Amino acid sequence: MILYKDVLGKLLAAGYTTYRIRKEKLIPESTMQKLRSGGIVTTDTLDTLCCLLHCQPGDLMEYVEN
């Protein structure tokens, strides 16, 4: 199972509030909801997140055995 490592907190710390993300259309609201609930996001979304946060995908998620 893939778990996200507080992606929304990392975005907020980098200055990306949910308001700013919506206003600048950086990430769709449906995708933000998936991140909140631990849903599956696309590699395009991971690319956007890594670009915004200047990080690697492994900094945003981890694999945990069931």
Rank of each mutant, 00 (worst) to 15 (best):
T42G: 14
L60F: 03
Q33N: 12
C51W: 12
G15P: 04
G58F: 01
I2V: 12
R36F: 03
Y63P: 00
T17E: 13
R36Y: 03
Q33P: 00
M61W: 08
M1A: 14
V41M: 02
D44M: 10
K23T: 09
Y4I: 06
C50I: 02
R20Y: 05
K5I: 08
L60K: 02
M32G: 06
K25V: 05
D6Y: 09
K5V: 08
A14F: 01
T42Q: 11
Y19R: 15
D47L: 14
T17S: 15
Y19E: 11
K34V: 00
Y16C: 02
R20S: 08
K34D: 08
T17A: 09
S37C: 12
C55D: 04
L49V: 00
T48C: 09
K25S: 12
L12A: 13
H54P: 10
D6E: 12
P57L: 10
R36V: 06
T18C: 06
L52D: 05
G15E: 05
V64N: 04
K34W: 04
H54Q: 15
G58E: 11
T45P: 01
G39N: 02
D44I: 11
L52I: 01
V64E: 12
N66L: 15
K5Q: 08
G58D: 08
R22Q: 13
G39K: 00
V41T: 08
M61I: 00
K10H: 07
G58I: 03
L26V: 04
D44H: 12
D59F: 10
D59I: 00
E24G: 00
T48H: 07
M61A: 10
M1Y: 05
T42E: 11
M61T: 00
Y16M: 01
L46E: 10
C51S: 15
D44R: 15
A13R: 10
M61N: 06
D44S: 14
P57E: 04
G58V: 01
P28G: 01
T42S: 15
I2L: 14
C55S: 08
L52K: 09
M32T: 05
L52H: 04
C50F: 00
D6W: 10
K10A: 07
E62S: 06
E29P: 03
Q56I: 08
G39M: 07
G9V: 00
C50D: 07
L60R: 04
L49H: 03
H54C: 13
T45L: 06
L26A: 08
L8A: 04
I2P: 07
N66G: 13
R22C: 08
G9K: 06
Y63V: 12
L46P: 06
S37T: 15
